[in-house]
Write a protein that binds this DNA or RNA. Structure first.
Lengths: 136, 136
DNA sequence: TCATTCTGTAATTATTTTTATTACAGTACA
DNA sequence: TGTACTGTAATAAAAATAATTACAGAATGA
């Protein structure tokens, strides 16, 4: 997983909540996060796909929350952002000739899934509203 | 975090448990994991530093478990291996001029710490012995 | 005792992943 | 109809990971 996606997405959502309905440009968001606007727009596309935000094209356009911050929990945000397993498996191609190597991925996966479930459950206890409240 | 360190370390530990006291070379471990022996030796240095394994230099040398597999729980292994926060913060330098950017890292950290605690607690329910049993 | 086979470790290079940049079509506003 | 945005692709740059090479030092055993 590209593990900077979660903080970026949460940062975006927090700023959008802060803007309370106002439309915010990717330029502005990128400025606060201190990353490239194109990367922000990509993350927004993903958040949009998951129904967290919506955006308006054209002059004066930008993004805004698509639902109330009370209705967005951080576990959902995590799930929307993760694309591989959290405990790592990038380029993991163990030797199939080894009895351990042959089966380890399958066992790692069940281990990961279970542990990640605990993580998500914990994150889900907090909504975006709870998180954003800390900035006020 | 370099998130392939956890699977590598767990793979090493599983193979060492499998070898039941026999000394295993980094060459052999690397062959099963399908990575470079030098990387294995680096991981072993870390596992050694944390008291999980020990190794013997010289001809016929190699590594072996330093304690019983029942006494190694996977949460401890995770902690020994992780070096940054799991939910990601690589090159996260938000704009200090922005009220949200200025404080977000602090809030992300408490969020991460809490969520990671849940993850580790889950992993800690399983020992290396439990995990290795699956290969028998 | 000395060739052999390992570990430990540093230095360098290669590869992969992530991020930034550039570019531009399309949309909405004023 | 110019201006300020989004959406998106393509490319380049930078950063992170992993592999390779190299070699000193340790233990073994012939």
């Amino acid at each position: 997983m590209n593990n900077s996606r979660f903080p970026i997405s949460l940062h975006i959502l927090t700023l959008l909540d802060d803007a309370s309905g106002t439309v915010v440009s990717s330029e502005y968001l990128a400025g606060s996060i201190n990353i490239n606007p194109v990367l922000v727009r990509k993350e927004i596309m993903n958040l949009r796909k998951h129904g967290f935000v919506d955006s308006k094209e054209g002059k004066g356009g930008g993004s805004f929350l698509a639902k109330s911050a009370e209705d967005i929990n951080l576990g959902e945000v995590y799930k929307a952002v993760k694309n591989s397993n959290i405990l790592g498996q990038s380029k993991n191609e163990p030797n199939p000739k080894c009895p351990v190597g042959r089966q380890i991925n399958q066992h790692l996966n069940t281990l990961y899934d279970d542990a990640e479930k605990a993580l998500i459950e914990n994150l889900s206890r907090q909504t975006l509203a709870d998180f954003a409240l800390k900035f006020k």
